[in-house]
Measured scan of single mutants.
Amino acid sequence: NQASVVANQLIPISTALTLVMMRSEVVTPVGIPAEDIPRLVSMTVNRAVPLGTTLMPDMVKGYA
């Protein structure tokens, strides 16, 4: 089972991601792979991401 990136807090729309905002967790459905966390830092989300939500590729500008 692959770990995915999960929001560690509410991430408001257009917020630049930082390490403290994300954690890795094995979830269903599978989202962005946890090993991509370093790549996600400073990318922005294009929607509000509630606490505990799995980050999907279409939620992060420039990721997909």
Rank of each mutant, 00 (worst) to 15 (best):
21 M>C: 04
42 S>N: 10
25 E>F: 06
48 A>G: 08
34 A>M: 09
18 T>A: 08
36 D>N: 08
57 P>K: 11
4 S>E: 00
39 R>K: 14
20 V>L: 12
27 V>E: 01
43 M>I: 03
60 V>M: 05
8 N>T: 12
22 M>A: 00
17 L>K: 00
42 S>M: 14
7 A>F: 03
15 T>H: 07
63 Y>A: 03
46 N>F: 07
31 G>W: 03
43 M>F: 15
31 G>V: 02
27 V>T: 11
12 P>H: 08
55 L>C: 03
6 V>S: 01
40 L>Q: 00
1 N>F: 14
61 K>C: 15
62 G>C: 11
9 Q>L: 11
54 T>R: 03
62 G>H: 10
1 N>W: 11
57 P>V: 06
40 L>E: 00
11 I>Y: 00
19 L>Q: 07
9 Q>Y: 10
29 P>T: 06
39 R>D: 05
17 L>W: 03
29 P>I: 06
7 A>C: 04
51 L>D: 13
4 S>M: 02
5 V>H: 01
21 M>F: 03
62 G>E: 09
38 P>Q: 10
28 T>L: 09
39 R>M: 11
4 S>D: 00
35 E>A: 11
21 M>N: 09
35 E>Y: 08
59 M>W: 12
26 V>I: 12
33 P>G: 05
41 V>D: 02
45 V>A: 05
24 S>Y: 06
28 T>Q: 11
44 T>P: 06
21 M>V: 03
41 V>K: 04
27 V>C: 06
58 D>I: 09
46 N>Y: 11
39 R>N: 08
58 D>W: 14
16 A>N: 07
52 G>C: 04
41 V>F: 05
11 I>Q: 01
54 T>P: 07
51 L>F: 13
10 L>Y: 15
4 S>Q: 01
62 G>I: 04
7 A>V: 07
40 L>W: 03
44 T>N: 08
27 V>R: 09
38 P>A: 12
44 T>D: 04
51 L>N: 14
14 S>E: 12
57 P>N: 05
55 L>M: 13
25 E>G: 09
64 A>R: 10
41 V>M: 06
23 R>I: 06
38 P>R: 08
1 N>L: 15
16 A>Q: 09
63 Y>K: 03
24 S>H: 13
19 L>C: 07
48 A>T: 15
10 L>D: 15
34 A>P: 06
35 E>V: 14
53 T>W: 15
47 R>T: 10
51 L>I: 15
61 K>S: 12
7 A>I: 04
63 Y>C: 04
15 T>Y: 08
57 P>S: 09
30 V>P: 11
51 L>G: 13
15 T>E: 07
3 A>S: 10
38 P>F: 09
63 Y>L: 05
26 V>E: 15
6 V>F: 01
54 T>W: 03
24 S>W: 09
52 G>K: 04
25 E>Q: 11
28 T>H: 09
35 E>S: 10
56 M>D: 04
16 A>R: 12
59 M>C: 05
18 T>V: 06
60 V>R: 01
53 T>C: 08
36 D>K: 10
13 I>A: 14
54 T>S: 04
9 Q>E: 11
20 V>I: 13
13 I>L: 10
52 G>T: 00
23 R>A: 06
20 V>C: 08
37 I>M: 14
34 A>Q: 06
31 G>Y: 02
64 A>P: 11
54 T>V: 13
60 V>Q: 00
38 P>H: 09
12 P>Q: 10
42 S>G: 14
39 R>Q: 11
22 M>R: 00
17 L>C: 03
29 P>E: 05
42 S>R: 11
37 I>C: 05
9 Q>D: 08
16 A>W: 07
39 R>W: 14
57 P>W: 09
28 T>I: 09
39 R>I: 09
29 P>K: 05
12 P>L: 07
18 T>Y: 03
61 K>D: 12
64 A>L: 12
60 V>T: 00
52 G>Y: 04
21 M>L: 05
24 S>G: 09
55 L>F: 15
49 V>I: 13
48 A>K: 10
25 E>C: 08
1 N>G: 10
13 I>M: 14
30 V>N: 12
19 L>D: 04
1 N>V: 15
51 L>K: 14
47 R>N: 07
25 E>L: 11
17 L>S: 00
7 A>E: 00
29 P>R: 04
57 P>F: 06
33 P>S: 12
33 P>N: 08
12 P>G: 06
47 R>Q: 12
35 E>W: 11
56 M>S: 07
19 L>K: 11
46 N>A: 06
49 V>N: 02
8 N>M: 06
54 T>F: 03
64 A>I: 14
44 T>C: 09
7 A>S: 10
15 T>D: 03
4 S>C: 06
49 V>P: 02
63 Y>Q: 04
24 S>F: 05
55 L>K: 01
35 E>Q: 13
9 Q>P: 01
49 V>M: 04
44 T>K: 11
1 N>I: 15
42 S>Q: 09
62 G>T: 05
27 V>N: 03
59 M>D: 13
28 T>R: 05
19 L>S: 08
36 D>P: 00
33 P>W: 09
64 A>T: 15
34 A>D: 07
45 V>T: 13
36 D>F: 11
36 D>Y: 12
29 P>Q: 05
47 R>Y: 08
63 Y>N: 04
33 P>C: 10
54 T>A: 06
50 P>R: 09
25 E>N: 09
22 M>E: 00
64 A>K: 12
30 V>F: 14
2 Q>C: 12
23 R>W: 03
55 L>W: 02
14 S>M: 15
32 I>S: 01
10 L>W: 13
50 P>Q: 11
36 D>A: 09
29 P>L: 04
15 T>C: 06
37 I>D: 02
27 V>D: 01
13 I>G: 15
20 V>M: 15
46 N>T: 13
60 V>G: 02
1 N>P: 15
27 V>F: 03
58 D>M: 12
34 A>F: 06
28 T>V: 13
8 N>H: 06
61 K>Y: 11
58 D>Y: 13
46 N>D: 08
56 M>E: 08
7 A>Y: 03
60 V>D: 00
34 A>L: 03
41 V>W: 02
53 T>P: 00
21 M>Y: 04
49 V>L: 10
59 M>E: 02
57 P>T: 06
40 L>C: 03
59 M>F: 15
24 S>R: 10
12 P>N: 09
39 R>G: 08
54 T>C: 05
23 R>H: 05
55 L>Y: 01
36 D>V: 08
49 V>D: 01
41 V>E: 05
23 R>T: 06
5 V>Q: 01
58 D>N: 12
44 T>F: 13
15 T>N: 04
48 A>L: 14
53 T>F: 13
49 V>R: 00
60 V>L: 08
61 K>V: 15
19 L>F: 15
39 R>T: 11
26 V>D: 15
59 M>V: 08
12 P>S: 06
41 V>G: 00
8 N>S: 14
39 R>E: 07
